[in-house]
Design a binder for these strands. Structure first.
Lengths: 241, 241
DNA sequence: GGTCAACATATTTTCGAAAATCCGTTGATT
DNA sequence: AATCAACGGATTTTCGAAAATATGTTGACC
């Protein structure tokens, strides 16, 4: 019987825990693209049996973060310039639609939540001082929340789910890019502008700013992916070759 | 060692088999919306242990065909008029984008495959004579293949995957509708027209026809959902109540 | 009669071992 | 030396039982 609110996370099944940890480890590239995911190693890493781990992996496979080859096991999904480009273009389209709908339908609640999300984001430092090679996980969450809040009024759970998944995928590339070439630009003002025009119902302008926001970030990522893709090479083989 | 081509399906893991069967049973509503999915029952139904079944269910959960409540097990995802409407609108947007790109980029290969897919579809009878209450699974597959072929040249695997998933979801509603109010209209000519204008690169016309194709089908489904939603009521409880 | 704790049953979740499969290596044969 | 079947270790996949959790029922108490 769970007594305190604090250990609310304790009551979740191992399965859910495995899922959360695996997703986080993959998105932050603590588990690198293309890295093999041996069940035995993961069992040890997360301290649980095979079932919850395999179940979580199957779920992540459907999300595209993990790939399964029959009888050969799982590995973290590969990254590539082609996939990144595809992701970018698709994201732009999806975000554009969602943003249009959201601006059209958003009411006071939407405005309030968006302002709140921006405020939280602006008070977060992007880089964790204790670990300057990675982006702060707090910032990352606030950033995701801001962009979610922007389109939250679109009125379509389906569209929101698709958008969230694409955002997640893109975030993995961002994490990868930061590892190889340091933090990206600071974009507080970009977010502020975006929020402003959205709240002003300047739909076309908002859509355009959002498009630029996505392409600017991901262009940088694409550049560092092309340059330093050594980082992802020789992954997944047992030894060097 | 698999010897013949015929039992190529034998070599797949039980996991993959469970996934395929569960997906099929859910999409055709042999497993009804909101129906509880007890592992013991599924073990018996598919003749395998718990692991492959739970793994398949987790994967389907990510696809939205199944829902999981912690420590209370799985059930087939609920259907609703609101969800159907959401699905319709989202599908129209996604299909529109994919179709635009496909018409823009499609070459001879695309044209040939599309013509082939249409031909196969037109030679399939929609209703299985042995089971007139359900749509023929062969037809259903050819129909899906046709619509896939239409957008196949869009050049975006991400978009294609999203589209396929939405199409699948919609198909479940179609199956449900057929159970309660008989087969829908025969739409061979509709498909033919759609193909024609696509091959002629009349983009706007194609997009509009595609939009109409989707909304016409799903409006009918929505109507029969509103009328005969008794079919899905009292599902999932052990006994009537 | 109503409330609720304690028990009993049904079901989900998790584990660890067994079976199946893959992959690299050895060694026999040509 | 080259080919390839057979072996062996590593790994994935699957099973069935055990543990954990939910749910329904009984009966004590007010």
């Amino acid at each position: 019987m769970p007594s305190s609110l604090a250990n609310a996370s304790t009551v979740q099944t191992l399965n859910a825990s495995a899922l959360a940890q695996l997703r986080s480890d993959i998105l932050t590239c603590r588990l690198m693209p293309n890295e093999r995911l041996r069940v035995e190693a993961l069992r040890e890493r997360y301290g649980m049996g095979t079932s919850p781990i395999r179940e979580a992996l199957m779920r992540l496979e459907a999300e595209g973060l993990v790939e399964l080859e029959q009888n050969k096991g799982f590995r973290v999904s590969e990254v590539s310039a082609a996939n990144l480009l595809d992701l970018m273009r698709t994201r732009v389209e999806i975000e554009t639609i969602a943003l249009r709908w959201s601006i059209e339908k958003g009411g006071v609640e939407w405005e309030a939540n968006l302002l709140g999300a921006f405020h939280r984001l602006s008070r977060q430092t992007k880089i964790d001082p204790s670990n300057p090679d990675a982006i702060s996980e707090d910032w990352s969450r606030e950033h995701a929340d801001f962009h979610t809040a922007l389109v939250a009024a679109c009125g379509s759970p389906t569209m929101m789910a698709i958008r969230a998944r694409l955002f997640e995928q893109a975030d993995r590339y961002v994490a990868l890019s930061i590892m190889s070439s340091g933090p990206l630009r600071d974009d507080v003002t970009e977010h502020k502008q975006l929020m402003r025009v959205a709240l002003n119902r300047e739909t076309e302008k908002a859509v355009e700013l959002n498009r630029l926001h996505i392409t600017r970030t991901l262009d940088k990522v694409a550049a560092s992916l092309a340059a330093g893709h050594a980082a992802t090479e020789s992954q997944g083989r047992k030894r060097s070759r």
